[in-house]
Amino acid sequence: MIATVLDAVSWLLLIAGSFFVITGGIGLLRLPDVYSRMHAAGMTDTLGAGLFIAGMAVQGGFTLVTAKLLIILVFILFTSPTATYALANAVWSGGVQPRRRDGTACETIDRSDGPLTS
């Protein structure tokens, strides 16, 4: 009984994870420039990986296997933004301007005078 419920939960989590991972792959192909593709890549690294690992952890139960899975997840969550920042900063320093879909340079909005109050 409990095994059936756990299997169903795992199925749900893994299917949701598959959806986000595949969406990330499609986004990587569809989005127009390297900056916007980073958002798709970030999607597979956060919720895609998280749901996959949660689905496997449900099957693992309270064992060392689950602990290792969680360590992998925490590691991905800590390194993914660092790698993305390094890439984005390299692209920016390399002089690549972000583009809109029609190819024009996108505008810069200056909010450094303080957060919005509204």
Binding site: T46, L47, P81, T84, Y85, A88, N89
Partner: peptide, 14 residues
């Protein structure tokens, strides 16, 4: 900055 990057839809560039 890392929290911004971790949230899809926003990436901190510099």
């Amino acid at each position: 900055a890392n929290s911004i990057t971790l949230t899809p839809g926003t990436v901190s560039v510099s």
